[in-house]
Amino acid sequence: MKATYYTILPAEIRLDKRLSAFEKILFSDILALANKKGYCYATNQYFAKIYQMSISSISHAISKLVDLDFIKRIYEYKDKTKMIERRKLYVQINNNIPIKNFPYPLVENTKQDVG
């Protein structure tokens, strides 16, 4: 799997001693993936595959980020059922204000001529 984006790790997350190194990396990935639509819809299976970790480890890390109010988790259900159709992860830092369209472009690097 080839990544086509880069991530940013805000100081508020980087310096938080309650978070493990992996939880900080996962947060930065969620932030990058949320940039386009304002939320991240990647599944735990997706993260487990790219980080070569168990789904339960990913779930635990995301739950910790939710518990610390760094991300907000919203479930969308299939019509008239309790079956989850999609999970949305919204990034909340700096007084828990949701972030959309992060102020820095999180886009694929492009090659440039350096004359």
Rank of each mutant, 00 (worst) to 15 (best):
K72H: 06
G115L: 03
D67N: 06
K82I: 12
K36A: 13
A48P: 08
I55G: 11
C40P: 05
I71K: 03
N94H: 15
V107H: 06
C40S: 03
L68C: 14
V114L: 11
K88S: 03
I84Q: 08
K80G: 00
I93H: 09
F27H: 03
Q52F: 15
P10G: 10
L15C: 11
D69Q: 14
V107C: 09
I8G: 05
T7R: 04
K17E: 12
Q112S: 13
R86V: 11
A21G: 11
P98D: 02
Y41G: 00
H60G: 13
K2I: 15
D29S: 06
V107K: 13
K78I: 01
D16E: 13
A21L: 14
P103Q: 06
K72T: 09
I71N: 04
T4E: 10
V114C: 13
Q92W: 02
D69N: 13
K37V: 11
C40L: 11
Y41H: 09
K111V: 09
K24V: 10
N96D: 06
N101R: 12
I97H: 13
I84T: 11
I74W: 12
N35M: 15
A48F: 11
L9A: 05
I74S: 02
V91E: 08
Y75M: 10
Q52H: 06
M1S: 08
G38W: 07
